[in-house]
């Protein structure tokens, strides 16, 4: 692209109208409404903002939201890697069905997932009736929040790792093996470095999604104050009390966190892509 020109010459039509409409619609639906949140938070005083987001109840909710999202992201990474591995490397009956089912959490409405998961883990539930006598309580505890967020996070990890694993050059493994590497060495020295970036991306996407998740969590968490209230729930509670400034303050902290996360993912992906392309060239 020549310096100073806005766009590269091209004979295709529609650049102006399509760009104009894209920017107009984007501004109308997303950018202008979203700026309302930030302007609203500026309109309240700094002291009030700090007071809101450092209230014990809010801090407890942030702790739960970040903690449970992190743990769920880790569980999703381990389980998701295993599922991706099996789907790519092995042949077994029902594989196509299993592969399709991985996407279910993307497609199932969160409220439906929420009531279904809760019903599994309560006293009379299919799993709860065995777990509760063993002393493992899931419904209405932080563990339940982790389970719900793992349900939400799993497909992000599987779908991020799977294509990389499928594209991985098996000849490298062959070479390592013929040079005398053990199975464990092949895994840690050859496979892990190839898949690592995609696993990290999957983890970050699962974590970011889990932070804001609402529908699948509020049923299984039971919403006990200071114990199992997640941050998005506090926003809803504040709104129900017409405390718009309070709701906005909690929201801004979450928005900034998730934007920083997503920006990080984006930059990381771009860097790995460039690295891979340079590698191929």
């Amino acid at each position: 692209m020549a310096a100073g020109t806005f766009r590269k010459a091209n004979i295709l039509p529609g650049f102006g109208p399509a760009l104009g409409y894209t920017v107009f619609y984007l501004s109308l639906i997303v950018l202008i409404p979203l700026s309302a949140v930030f302007l609203k938070s500026v309109s309240s005083t700094w002291a009030h903002f700090v007071e809101t987001v450092t209230a014990p109840k809010v801090l407890a909710a942030y702790r739960l939201s970040f903690g449970a999202s992190f743990v769920a992201g880790l569980v999703s990474s381990v389980v998701g890697f295993l599922i991706a591995w099996v789907l790519v490397r092995y042949e077994f009956p029902g594989k196509a069905l299993a592969d399709a089912l991985v996407d279910l959490p993307f497609a199932l409405p969160t409220a439906v997932a929420g009531i279904a998961l809760t019903s599994l883990y309560t006293e009379n539930g299919w799993l709860g009736r065995y777990l509760i006598p063993m002393g493992i309580k899931v419904a209405f505890t932080p563990l339940g929040v982790v389970i719900a967020l793992t349900f939400i996070g799993l497909p992000f990890v599987v779908r991020s790792v799977q294509p990389v694993l499928a594209d991985a050059d098996r000849e490298l493994e062959e070479a390592a093996t013929s040079l005398g590497a053990t199975r464990v060495q092949v895994f840690t020295k050859v496979i892990a470095p190839m898949v690592g970036p995609s696993l990290l991306t999957g983890f970050a996407m699962a974590f970011a999604r889990a932070l804001g998740e609402y529908g699948s969590v509020i049923f299984i968490s039971g919403n006990l104050p200071m114990k199992t209230e997640i941050a998005p729930l506090l926003i809803v509670t504040k709104l129900e009390q017409y405390d718009y400034a309070g709701a906005t303050a909690i929201a801004v902290v979450m928005l900034v966190t998730s934007f920083v996360l997503l920006l990080g993912i984006n930059m990381f992906q771009r860097r790995t892509r460039r690295y891979m392309e340079a590698d191929e060239a």
Binding site: V30, P33, V37, T110, Y214, G215, Y244
Partner: peptide, 21 residues
């Protein structure tokens, strides 16, 4: 990146936006 924004916003915050407006 801007088009992706709604994916990164908590559903609850997506609702809050329109209450504020």
């Amino acid at each position: 990146s801007l088009i992706d924004i709604p994916f990164g916003v908590s559903p609850v915050i997506s609702g809050l936006i329109f209450i504020l407006l």
